[in-house]
Every structure is written in C-alpha cells, then in structure tokens.
Design a protein around this nucleic acid. Sequence first.
DNA 1: TGTCAATATGATCTTTAGAGCATAAAGTGG
DNA 2: CCACTTTATGCTCTAAAGATCATATTGACA
Lengths: 81, 81
Amino acid sequence: MRHIARSPSDVGHALREARKAKKLTQKELAARSGIWQETISKIENGHPGTKLETLFDLCAALSLELVFTERSSAPAIEDIF
Amino acid sequence: MRHIARSPSDVGHALREARKAKKLTQKELAARSGIWQETISKIENGHPGTKLETLFDLCAALSLELVFTERSSAPAIEDIF
DNA sequence: TGTCAATATGATCTTTAGAGCATAAAGTGG
DNA sequence: CCACTTTATGCTCTAAAGATCATATTGACA
C-alpha cells in the first residue's frame, strides 16, 4: 500500500483504501483508534479541518506512516507501486 | 529529502528541515504559503492541532508531498535516505 | 557588543473540529 | 423483499486552532 496525498481529500481516500485493504469496518477502526465512526466517515469523505492528531491516531491503528518527500512530477491522487 | 512522521511533532520537524533545505525563512514561507509566520513557528515546534489544510498549504509551498505507506519496523523520527 | 533579521510567545477573537448521540441512507446476504 | 450491518448526516456543545497584532527572545555578523 502506497498512496500519495496532496490534499485533505486525498488523505481521506488513502485512509479508506488502507482500511479496506485490512478488511476493517469504520466501526472496528473506531474501536482501535479511539476516533468515532462518524468522524472517520467524515474524514474519509473529505470533510475539512481534520487535525494531525486525529490523522496519526488513525495511521497508528492502520499501521501506516507518513513519509514527506520531494514532490514528484508524477500524477497526484493515484496509487503508485 | 525524505522524512518519516508518526506524530504531529515529527511533522513540525520535517517541515522545518524541508524549509531550511530550501533556504527559506519562516517569513518567506509564510508569504508563499499564505500561512502566518507565527503559525509556522508554532507548527514547527509541535504545537497541537494543526489542520490538514494548513499542512498541505505548507507542503505545496515547499514542493513536498505526503506518501502513506505501510509502517516499517525502522526507527521512527529519524531521517532516512 | 550593537543592530537588524529571524523566530518565538502571548493575548484576543472568531470559527469550527470533534465528541457524543440520534437516526437516515446505503449495502448486503438470506 | 427483509433484516442486519455499514456508512453517512445532522444536531448541540465545548475546546481549541489559527488569524491578527504586539512584543519578546534569539541569532548572525559587521
């Protein structure tokens, strides 16, 4: 799993893909992360204003990490391998 | 440039390193990103609650992108090459 | 060490995320 | 179709981010 994100809605997309890849429901992820299912739904759908703390709680529960890199010229939202 | 971030303060660290690598002052970055110098200072120092919108504004101004990946077992905060 | 740039801190104010709860809508399998 | 699960939406309330300005502190260097 590897997703490039350049906007909050990309983040929502990446989180949803990661969650699905691990076959978790929002409810299960909520239980693991401490973030409410309703909030997860909103984040996955790109609602504005998500805080970094919330993001990292979800990342931890999904065993994800964020890597900052120089911006590539490659296409944005899509998955890369 | 490549930084792993697993917490908001890692993000602050990564942003500061990226800004310095590009030889920009907080003031210059503020002008480019639309985020206030005071706010940049707080983010770099790990003040809580930074929003994704703010982060991406800074990333855009620094030509950075975020990549979500499976968590490695490698050491956390440090830079990797 | 004096000056100016760079960064940090601190206060106020406005806006809003997210908790928390209820419930609607959408999916899905029998 | 129906019942159940999953996801989305909507509400109120409270805590807090970030804009904004003012100022303190730190850092560079001539």
